[in-house]
């Protein structure tokens, strides 16, 4: 384990576990086994992080670097994240089984408050050639990019420095009224974010 503080590890568990739930629902909506398998891998990662965190936190308490109150808070927060990650894995289990998904699953995911969408970035799209930090899709149109596919490579939980290029496929989460805006941007139909 890298030498990172327990607080950073908890934060990683929290952010990753929430991303996993979004990815899990996306995998169902788009019948995508690659995303589902990524959720499995992330779950293993979180299990490892959580195991190490418990030990490191206890050691920090015994060395009096951490108060028992702080340690308890850190461990409980991490446990919550670990449980959410478990739930995400149970969701993708349904996708990875050799049973066709019940059509109701997709229908109810589409009717949800927060929708998941998938767009293909065309050559003339304004999104192409810019980083997510420059595009600020989250604060400008309310859509958060949770995963993307660049050529044959997948990227999960991209950050501000991630570059969007033409022919990328973006998986995003946000309010239903923003879905069309993202689609138009990716299609090159609108140049205004």
């Amino acid at each position: 384990m890298k030498k990172t503080s327990a607080e950073e590890v908890v934060l990683e568990i929290k952010d990753k576990s929430e991303l996993m739930v979004d990815l899990a629902y996306s995998s169902l909506l788009y019948n995508n086994k690659t995303i589902a398998e990524e959720v499995y891998d992330l779950e293993n990662l979180i299990d490892d992080l959580y195991e190490n965190l418990q030990r490191d936190t206890l050691e920090a308490v015994s060395k009096q670097q951490l108060t028992s109150d702080s340690a308890l808070t850190i461990i409980k927060l991490a446990k919550a994240g670990e449980e959410i990650a478990d739930a995400a894995m149970e969701i993708v289990d349904v996708q990875l089984r050799d049973v066709e998904l019940h059509p109701i699953i997709r229908m109810s995911l589409k009717e949800s408050d927060e929708v998941l969408s998938r767009v293909f970035v065309k050559k003339n799209s304004i999104l192409s050639g810019k980083t997510l930090g420059e595009l600020k899709l989250g604060s400008e149109i309310g859509m958060t990019i949770i995963a993307m596919r660049h050529k044959n490579r997948w990227l999960y939980g991209p950050n501000k420095k991630t570059l969007v290029e033409s022919e990328d496929i973006l998986f995003a989460k946000g309010p239903a009224d923003a879905e069309k805006h993202l689609q138009d941007l990716a299609d090159g139909k609108t140049m205004e974010i």
Binding site: S139, E140, I141, G142, M143, T144, G174, P175, D177, A178
Partner: peptide, 8 residues
């Protein structure tokens, strides 16, 4: 609000 600011 959400699509303009990303705040839910």
């Amino acid at each position: 609000i959400e699509s303009e600011t990303g705040m839910r």
